[in-house]
Design a protein around this nucleic acid. Structure first.
Lengths: 227, 227
DNA sequence: CGCTTAATTGATCAGGGTCAATCGTGGTGG
DNA sequence: CCACCACGATTGACCCTGATCAATTAAGCG
């Protein structure tokens, strides 16, 4: 499994891009130097449940899924992380989640010790970390809310709306993940997700021009469902 | 609703108790002086969704529920907070959750501004806040996990185990909350919670000596269900 | 052009929601 | 002290949504 290693680039072009990107994200200067750029191909494992918590990551491009494997074989996807999201930061010694690249993606890998050390000296850094934690908390709570929604169609509608937010006002939304991913995120089966999407299409609320594309025709109707 | 005000005590006995309690919880000295003791009777509203985020709380005794009211009238309980838990700390200006006392409880109320100001100067305080955030995050994630469990009996079993943890090795567990609370926490109906408990009792896994008491007879079986 | 994997669709079944009746417990007042 | 009431909890009957099993279609890819 680790035979296929992630590529770690240090070419100047990449480093420049990183610095520019970081500056645009209001990242404290000390943090900008602390990380290391990593690229991962589709499906690559970034870390696994039970592993050590030495590192954590920030997504630059692409999508990452964090998940648990349950004893009955099911997979519960905790979150999809996209550009700007931080994931894999935990207090304990052991990871409670695994992480994989949903598609090709670029991340910055930080060493936890280094950052904690930085945070000791620099208030900007510790504030930044705190914001990250609170952001992840808010996300986890809204995920709980998703899972507590009764209807399958409602869950799918809520998911589509949430996912579409990162594309601003665009109506034609690319889906980075498979139906199975969506199902595992929503606590449904792949068939039910498919049926819900089909029904939304029949009702004219969305269109499915491509297998990994959704067009949001009636956002009000979606919001009404997601309520 | 606010006609029944929470009592705010400043008697020396209470203050002494507070200080002793805080010392036992490894709370940084600057934080110990910053809060104010509040007591709330059963069902009292502590804060409401949409309100301002000026304050947050730490539970000393009793149980608090944080929840959202959904558009369809349902109530989603996000968490039950018990002794030592911090709740109501949010980044945004508006609260995304409401909070109520499940039973009579005592809390410390902090002013967010004061604490953020303290955190600027004192690393211990900001570290403490960070830990709190990460702890709440872990809790929210384990709640997502609970909600993604398929069977009703499995959810109830997982809930009982999680709830029992705060009582150490004790087998006779008091339930502070009603069946409705449990149902709203697990995303089930009151009837299904009741049926699940009855079934667990029939199977000899638990006993229900009182309406608000559970005896855990076969913890291994529970763990097996919760898996 | 097959081969493989993902997605859709259909048919059937079971778990949990819903509605309704009953039970139990605790509190109040006669 | 007991009768009564109110509220929470339990139990039963029925139905509906989503899981399951199975077949078909569509989409990459060598």
């Amino acid at each position: 499994m680790n035979a296929q290693l992630a590529s770690v680039k240090s070419a100047t072009s990449i480093v420049d891009a990183r610095t520019a990107w970081m500056a645009s994200q209001n990242i404290p200067a000390p943090l900008q130097a602390a990380g290391c750029v990593v690229e991962m191909g589709v499906g690559r494992e970034i870390f696994a449940e039970g592993g050590d918590t030495e590192t954590f990551y920030k997504v630059i491009s692409g999508v990452v899924r964090t998940y648990r494997l349950l004893s009955d074989g099911r997979r519960q996807i905790e979150a999809f992380h996209t550009s700007g999201d931080v994931f894999g930061f935990e207090m304990g010694e052991e990871r409670s989640l695994s992480a994989e690249a949903v598609n090709d993606c670029t991340m910055i890998c930080y060493r936890r010790r280094n950052i904690e050390c930085l945070a000791q000296k620099d208030h900007g850094v510790s504030q930044h970390l705190f914001r990250i934690a609170m952001q992840n908390l808010a996300e986890a709570q809204s995920h709980s809310l998703l899972l507590s929604r009764r209807g399958a169609v409602e869950r799918v509608a809520a998911f589509l709306l949430a996912w579409s937010r990162q594309f601003g006002k665009a109506r034609l939304i690319p889906l980075a993940m498979t139906r199975q991913d969506i199902a595992d995120y929503l606590g449904l089966t792949i068939e039910t997700v498919s049926r819900s999407l089909s029904q939304l299409e029949r009702d004219g609320v969305i269109a499915l021009p491509g297998i990994r594309e959704v067009r949001l025709n009636d956002i009000a109707a979606l919001q009404n469902l997601a309520a």
